[in-house]
């Protein structure tokens, strides 16, 4: 039995005119989890406003760049069909997917917005005070721009490190510092060989 309002899908669809894709699941212990993909990222603010009026609390924001799905090679003479997310944003491995997780009295509702690479997204900080840090954080992890953020400074990452760290996918063991596995193992092997 879900504790979420039954009209949730309908209400969200009304606030997001570009369309939504809604799924909901309730586990054996009665805890529900709803996922709502917004066709247009511009619908985020009205949808979030609706959630706020529902009494929801913004739990956190997750940003990621989903890997592009493998597509079969197009048949001769046909244009390749590029995979897209719901709403038509290209799923090219660079598009950002931003998940806004709301807590409604224990249940989770996630609003999902897709932002093309180089795009921007409206800030929820004026609406939810607690979106401040999560939005600052997503700006330093990826190169997405949160427009309208009151304090767009770095949050955690030291200025000595280039931004968008999760996006650049720093190669394993190829970092500038000495903490890499490879260097250490070479030392260990050399030393144990001579001393043991």
């Amino acid at each position: 039995m879900s504790k979420l309002p039954e009209t949730l899908e309908l209400c969200l669809a009304t606030t997001a005119p570009a369309g939504i894709e809604f799924t909901s699941k309730t586990d054996a212990k009665g805890v529900s989890c709803a996922w709502c993909t917004l066709a247009s990222k511009d619908d985020l603010l009205p949808a979030a406003t609706f959630m706020k009026n529902l009494g929801a609390r913004l739990s956190t924001i997750t940003i990621l760049q989903p890997k592009a799905p493998a597509t079969p090679a197009p048949a001769e003479g046909e244009a390749a069909v590029l995979p897209t997310f719901f709403g038509g944003v290209a799923s090219d491995g660079k598009t950002f997917e931003i998940n806004y997780h709301f807590d409604v009295n224990g249940d989770t509702v996630t609003l999902i917005a897709h932002v093309p690479f180089g795009g921007n997204i409206a800030s929820l900080t004026p609406l939810f005070r607690c979106a401040d840090w999560p939005e600052r954080e997503l700006m330093e992890l990826y190169s997405v721009v949160v427009s309208g953020h009151p304090d767009p400074r770095r949050l955690f990452i030291d200025p000595s490190i280039d931004g968008a760290v999760l996006e650049r996918l720093i190669p394993f063991s190829a970092l500038a510092n000495s903490a890499t596995t490879k260097g250490l193992w070479e030392k260990i092997m050399a030393q144990t060989g001579s001393k043991s």
Partner: peptide, 8 residues
């Protein structure tokens, strides 16, 4: 003795 703390 740092690097002798190993099993080989």
């Amino acid at each position: 003795d740092e690097f002798t703390m190993a099993i080989r």
